[in-house]
């Protein structure tokens, strides 16, 4: 992240009027993007606003890693703009491209469940702006607003279920080949 961007976003949190951010604060457009994320599809606008309060904005430069294989997972990322490549190094040391994710897509959702090590790395291929949700913040939300927290967790379970089924199908297909 560039120094100017980071300092303006950091300082503006506490002293918004001393270091004003230029133009639109982007809250409405963030809510719109969040509404499109499958994890939050069930949420009302007011609930999305509550969720956005526990999100951290991060800006990544091309070539940076969002996270790396083996590190303990702590947060899920939603891409607001930019492009991220999910890569894995196989046993022969070769880099495998698993997926390329862009605006509106999310990654690292398993970190919302526990701190088990990341199974792949996320490499930034285009300058990226992302919103991150920290696991413990979501767990605290479950305590203070169980209804909202419950909705997110339920949707998370559904998404993980779908991805598990897709993986099983892929595995079956591979075995048949």
């Amino acid at each position: 992240m560039s120094a100017t961007e980071k300092s303006s976003s950091g300082l503006a949190t506490l002293w918004g009027n001393i270091f004003p951010s230029s133009g639109d604060d982007g809250k409405d457009s963030l809510i719109k993007i969040l509404k499109e994320v499958p994890l939050f599809r069930e949420l009302r606008k007011s609930e999305l606003r509550s969720i956005s309060k526990i999100m951290y904005e991060r800006n990544f430069e091309k070539g940076e890693y969002m996270f790396e294989t083996g590190q303990p997972g702590a947060a899920m990322f939603i891409i607001i703009e930019g492009e991220v490549k999910i890569i894995k190094i196989d046993n022969d040391g070769e880099e495998l491209d698993l997926a390329t994710l862009s605006e509106g897509e999310f990654l690292g959702e398993l970190a919302l469940l526990d701190s088990s090590p990341r199974s792949a790395s996320a490499l930034i291929t285009e300058r990226t702006k992302a919103m991150a949700i920290f696991r413990e913040d979501l767990h605290k939300l479950l305590e203070t607003d169980p209804q909202l927290g419950g909705k997110v967790m339920k949707q998370l379970a559904v998404i993980i279920g779908i991805r598990l089924k897709a993986t099983n199908n892929l595995l079956l297909k591979k075995e048949k080949e």
Partner: peptide, 17 residues
Amino acid sequence: KFLIDLMPNRYFEMSLT
């Protein structure tokens, strides 16, 4: 948020934890 925003990306998740 203020403290976390000051952290470089490399230390982001670690700082939260």
